[in-house]
Amino acid sequence: MSWFNRNKNDIKWIEIDEETREEMLEFTGKRDKVYKKKWEKLSTKKSPISWNWAAFFLSLFWFTYRKMNVFAYLFLGIIVVVDVLSIVFFKKALPGSTIAPAYIVLALFGNKLYFDFALNKVKKLKDIYPDRDERLAVIKKRGGVSWLYAFLFVVVMMIYGFGSAALEEEVYYSYMEPKFTEAAELQDSGELDEAIGIYKDIENDNITVPSIHFNKALIYEEQGEYEKALSEMNTYIGFEPEDREAMEIKEEIEAKME
């Protein structure tokens, strides 16, 4: 059976009794009519795919805004583990584009996840609060949206961002510095190809070390690859605009290109 095919435990909106539907819409709070249309449309499909723009643009923040904290923090936990492993083994954090497809998946399944979340919450509250008036009051309180949860998640993400950057910098420099020394020694001894290979290997898109670009420029100039030399020197000067020696070398490279 295909993953997208309906399983025995899957429940459609059209199969739910009217009372439960009303309580689910009460649970959604804002934009209840929008989700009613989305869930009705899902009932006519065999797959759980249904696009959610809010989940796409806000990603994990949308989940916390809709009080689905478990999904947001579980996914963040996965990101943290992957990031730490990448830093430890590859000496750099994964670029954001690497996990971008995962956010698209969240947007594709956001409506279904929210449907299941709301249905499960309402069912549990039915068992706990037999009296409907009392239950509706609790549903209204526990459902809806929460700017507080979204804000707290922003704080958590900021802490994670700073922590990840600090870890990456610590691991990277402990790896880069001896490698840089090795490359510089190879460069001084005329082993330029070996040196440039190490410089390329220790470059990090997230942490810039200007000296790497400076030394690469010198190697490319010596090898007669003046366009590459100029590009690397311009990059270096972008970080060290007051370096007069670099400006003089740049002028020498440009003169050789004429």
Results as ranks from 00 to 15, higher is better:
residue 189 S to Y: 00
residue 198 I to N: 01
residue 175 Y to Q: 03
residue 204 N to S: 09
residue 189 S to C: 02
residue 193 D to H: 04
residue 190 G to M: 02
residue 193 D to F: 05
residue 193 D to K: 09
residue 185 E to A: 14
residue 181 T to A: 12
residue 174 S to M: 07
residue 181 T to G: 10
residue 189 S to G: 03
residue 196 I to R: 02
residue 177 E to I: 15
residue 183 A to K: 00
residue 196 I to W: 01
residue 198 I to V: 13
residue 204 N to T: 09
residue 194 E to K: 15
residue 203 E to F: 08
residue 178 P to N: 03
residue 199 Y to Q: 07
residue 187 Q to K: 11
residue 183 A to S: 05
residue 205 D to Y: 12
residue 180 F to M: 05
residue 181 T to R: 09
residue 190 G to L: 03
residue 185 E to K: 12
residue 180 F to E: 00
residue 200 K to D: 13
residue 179 K to V: 11
residue 183 A to Q: 01
residue 203 E to I: 12
residue 181 T to D: 09
residue 198 I to M: 06
residue 194 E to F: 03
residue 191 E to Y: 05
residue 184 A to Y: 14
residue 194 E to P: 04
residue 175 Y to S: 09
residue 196 I to D: 04
residue 202 I to L: 07
residue 183 A to V: 01
residue 190 G to P: 08
residue 196 I to Y: 03
residue 175 Y to W: 13
residue 201 D to Q: 15
residue 204 N to W: 01
residue 200 K to I: 15
residue 182 E to F: 06
residue 195 A to S: 10
residue 202 I to C: 08
residue 201 D to W: 08
residue 194 E to T: 12
residue 182 E to R: 10
residue 195 A to C: 09
residue 176 M to C: 15
residue 190 G to C: 06
residue 193 D to S: 12
residue 198 I to H: 06
residue 179 K to E: 13
residue 181 T to L: 07
residue 202 I to R: 00
residue 183 A to H: 00
residue 190 G to S: 10
residue 194 E to D: 15
residue 202 I to Y: 02
residue 205 D to S: 14
residue 176 M to G: 09
residue 198 I to F: 05
residue 186 L to C: 05
residue 205 D to N: 13
residue 203 E to T: 14
residue 184 A to C: 08
residue 202 I to F: 02
residue 177 E to P: 11
residue 193 D to G: 06
residue 188 D to M: 11
residue 189 S to V: 03
residue 179 K to A: 15
residue 199 Y to G: 08
residue 189 S to I: 03
residue 190 G to E: 03
residue 198 I to Q: 01
residue 182 E to P: 08
residue 187 Q to H: 08
residue 198 I to L: 06
residue 204 N to K: 04
residue 197 G to Q: 10
residue 182 E to Y: 07
residue 176 M to S: 15
residue 177 E to G: 10
residue 189 S to D: 04
residue 176 M to R: 12
residue 195 A to L: 00
residue 199 Y to V: 14
residue 187 Q to Y: 02
residue 175 Y to E: 02
residue 175 Y to V: 12
residue 202 I to K: 01
residue 197 G to C: 04
residue 181 T to M: 07
residue 201 D to N: 14
residue 200 K to L: 14
residue 195 A to F: 01
residue 183 A to I: 01
residue 197 G to H: 08
residue 189 S to E: 03
residue 197 G to P: 02
residue 200 K to N: 14
residue 185 E to M: 06
residue 187 Q to R: 11
residue 196 I to H: 01
residue 174 S to F: 04
residue 180 F to R: 01
residue 199 Y to W: 06
residue 175 Y to F: 14
residue 194 E to M: 09
residue 191 E to F: 03
residue 201 D to I: 15
residue 202 I to S: 02
residue 187 Q to M: 13
residue 192 L to H: 07
residue 186 L to R: 04
residue 176 M to Y: 12
residue 200 K to W: 10
